[in-house]
Structure formats: C-alpha cells, structure tokens
C-alpha cells in the first residue's frame, strides 16, 4: 500500500478537528475530485501555536494534512507562506499522479494565512 508514514497518519490523524476561536481559517478544494480541507490556526506573535484540519478526502490528502499540521507548528506564518510546494511534495514522497491530493492541505493553510491562491 502507501508508504508507512502516510498509512500511519491516515489511520491515526494528528490535529484533526476545528479550533473554536481561530486567528486564521481557510479551506481549499481539490480541483480533480472536489475533496475539501479546512485549516484553522491560532498564533502568538506570528508563530503558529495550534493548528487543526478538517474535511473529507482520500488517504493521501488526509495524511498530508496531518503531516503538514505537525510540520508547521512553531513556524512563523511568513515561513509557511514561503513554503515551497515541491519541498512539501518531496517530504510526503512523490506519489505519482497524486500531487493534487498532496497539495490540498498546503493550499488550504496558505489561504487561511491570507495568501491569494487563484484556484
């Protein structure tokens, strides 16, 4: 099946749910299948303190979202906005034909933090 790390995050997602009073909130859909992921974020002095994802999707998009929430805790919002798509794809492991599924969560998070993503 999928690589071990993905299976682990798919079966036991971290930081799933919603933050009740978030500082930032945003969602993004996968243009290929319509799956939707929502990200909510709490920050202190520009640093991400708490983050949760919510939504429905395939194993890759769910696991990627879970992995992303762990990656960005402690980073500044600016660092997240500057995160490179390719780096994130490499981190998840380049899964052929599924890059759209990997990127839903990152796009949702960037949208939440105020990036104007045109799609």
């Amino acid at each position: 099946m999928y690589p071990e790390e993905i299976m682990d995050h798919y079966k036991n997602p971290r930081n799933q749910g919603n933050i009740q009073y978030p500082d930032y909130e945003g969602e993004h859909g996968n243009p290929v299948c319509g799956d939707l992921i929502k990200m909510s974020v709490k920050t202190r002095n520009g640093v991400i303190e708490e983050i949760k994802f919510d939504g429905e999707g395939c194993a890759i998009s769910m696991a990627s979202a879970s992995i992303l929430t762990e990656m960005v805790k402690g980073k500044t919002t600016r660092q997240v906005l500057e995160m490179d798509e390719k780096e994130f794809i490499d981190k998840i492991g380049n899964i052929q034909t599924r890059t759209q599924c990997v990127l839903v969560s990152l796009n949702a998070l960037k949208k939440a933090l105020g990036d104007d993503i045109n799609c």
Binding site: M1, V32, C33, G57, C58, I60, T97, R98
Partner: peptide, 19 residues
C-alpha cells in the same frame, strides 16, 4: 476514498475511473 481504490487498482494494471 475512490481515488485510493483507483490508485491501487492501477498498480495492478487495472484502469478504472474515480471521482
């Protein structure tokens, strides 16, 4: 999810559509 099913069927040479 349908995409996961289609992805693993493809690994065995089976072309189905998902979405």
């Amino acid at each position: 999810h349908a995409h996961d099913v289609a992805y693993f069927l493809d690994k065995k040479g089976i072309a189905v559509r998902s979405g």
